[in-house]
């Protein structure tokens, strides 16, 4: 019974890929072992059969165009994860952008507000949906409320023209 390792060596011998040091051993094995000889002949026949009957595909396009299509497909597959992460990032940005805008406005108002007698900490920023509209495109607003001061401030931020 021929083990798998010997069978692989015989396959390599048929393919001419056996290291030179193992070629001698393989030749001796074929002389001594009829089963190994039989397998070698089968592998050799299979190799000649495949090589002799291999179908030759004719591609109806030029060689350069054919391989450029493959190259493009590989590039497309490689860029897909990057695009997906960009999509995730865009979704993330869409979610965070309004909050960022509010944060920037809050920063502007924080600078405008002094923290002396009425600490900024005591002011609560209300969302833009808090019963307020700024219809002009170039303006935005942010509302702050301080219960302690009894004051509601609507700060209108106008973009410079």
């Amino acid at each position: 019974m021929i083990d798998q390792n010997t069978a692989l060596k015989l396959q390599a011998y048929v393919d001419g890929e056996l290291p030179s040091g193992d070629v001698r051993q393989a030749a001796e094995l074929l002389e001594k072992d009829p089963e190994a000889k039989l397998l070698f002949e089968e592998l050799k026949a299979s190799k000649s059969l495949l090589a002799g009957n291999e179908l030759e595909l004719q591609v109806p396009e030029s060689r350069e165009f054919y391989w450029s299509k493959i190259a493009r497909e590989i590039a497309r597959q490689e860029s897909r994860p990057a695009r997906e992460s960009a999509g995730v990032r865009a979704w993330w940005l869409r979610l965070v952008a309004p909050a960022g805008a509010v944060a920037v406005l809050a920063l502007v108002v924080s600078i405008a507000l002094k923290s002396t007698s009425l600490p900024v900490r005591s002011w609560v920023a209300l969302s833009d949906e808090h019963e307020i509209d700024t219809p002009l495109e170039e303006t935005s607003s942010i509302t702050f409320r301080s219960e302690a001061a009894g004051m509601t401030v609507v700060w209108v931020n106008s973009q410079p023209n």
């Binding site: 019963e131 307020i132 509209d133 002009l136 004051m151 509601t152 609507v154 209108v156 931020n157």
Partner: peptide, 21 residues
């Protein structure tokens, strides 16, 4: 031009401040 519209419940002593730079 309307700059801002605000709805607010105003109690006595409270201030509503509409402001901008």
């Amino acid at each position: 031009k309307m700059v801002v519209r605000k709805r607010q419940q105003l109690a006595l002593g409270e201030l509503l401040v509409l402001a901008g730079d």
